[in-house]
Amino acid sequence: MKKYLFHSTIFLALLLSVPAVKAQKSDDDKIRKVLYFNPEVEPDIEEIEEPTNNAFFSSVSDILSGYRKNKMLRAEIQIPFDEVDPKTIVEYCTNNDADFAIVSKVKYFKVGIGRYVFSNQVVVSMKLFDENGNLLTESDYDTYRKNMRLLGSTENSVKIGTNGAVKGILKKLRKIKPSAEAGF
């Protein structure tokens, strides 16, 4: 009987200690939520905004699917890239329970004489803010200069540019704060 009671007590102690260990999760185990705003598209032509947004978010979701500790949130509004208001970032992060926010811009190269003649080359720029509206880092990726990419679809160029800009942010973030990269 004593043996049975002893094993029961140990089993009960182990059973009660498991939730305590789970409750002590470190900050690195926390799932981080990253809020992405629709990218500002330059030039501002309505016909190219929706395909650009689709390519941009397709690339972002592909990238973040490799990071298990992150969750992508999408805000269906556009914030001007050059005039980011920290109060707006704080408000959106608070309302969406986000840890970070990314404001981005996709700039198409204009080629030729006509008004609507564009190249498939893009520059994707991103700014990373924390939940308090502080700018942590920024990055840009020029598909022509970095890849020497002359042929291919515009959608693919937006995806390559987005991938390059996110990698640039992660690289700069590692230099700034080594522990923050693990969470991003």
Rank of each mutant, 00 (worst) to 15 (best):
D27N: 05
I79S: 00
G133E: 08
L128A: 04
G161Q: 04
G183Q: 09
G152L: 13
L14D: 01
L16C: 11
N163P: 01
G114A: 14
I45F: 15
L135C: 09
V117K: 12
T143N: 06
S8L: 15
Y108E: 06
D29W: 04
G112F: 03
K175Q: 07
I89M: 08
I79W: 03
Y141R: 07
P39E: 09
L16M: 12
A13T: 12
Y116E: 08
N96D: 01
F109Q: 13
F109A: 15
V60F: 04
G183I: 02
P80W: 00
S104V: 10
V34C: 06
N95L: 15
K33A: 07
R115E: 09
E131P: 00
F56D: 04
I160N: 06
F37T: 09
N134A: 12
F11Q: 01
Y116N: 08
N53P: 05
E47R: 12
E155D: 11
L170W: 03
N53K: 14
E181Q: 11
L14W: 05
E46R: 15
A101S: 14
G152P: 00
D27T: 11
P39A: 11
E138I: 05
L15V: 09
K107H: 07
V84H: 08
K25D: 02
V34Y: 06
D130G: 08
S179T: 13
A182H: 04
K171H: 08
D97N: 14
S157I: 10
F81L: 05
E49Y: 02
S59V: 03
Y108N: 05
A180T: 07
L64Q: 09
G133D: 07
L12D: 00
M1H: 12
L64C: 02
D85A: 11
V117G: 03
T154N: 02
P39S: 10
R32G: 04
V117F: 06
E40G: 04
S179H: 10
R74A: 09
L5A: 11
Y4G: 04
L15T: 12
R68E: 05
I169T: 02
E50L: 15
V166Q: 07
A98L: 06
E138P: 00
E138V: 05
D85N: 15
A182F: 05
N132K: 14
T52R: 08
V90L: 09
G164F: 03
S153Q: 10
V41W: 01
F37P: 02
V18K: 06
F37G: 03
V166H: 01
K71Y: 00
I31A: 11
D99K: 02
E40N: 07
K87N: 12
E76V: 12
E47V: 14
R32E: 07
Y116H: 08
K3G: 04
V60W: 03
V166T: 03
S61R: 15
F6S: 00
A23L: 13
V41R: 05
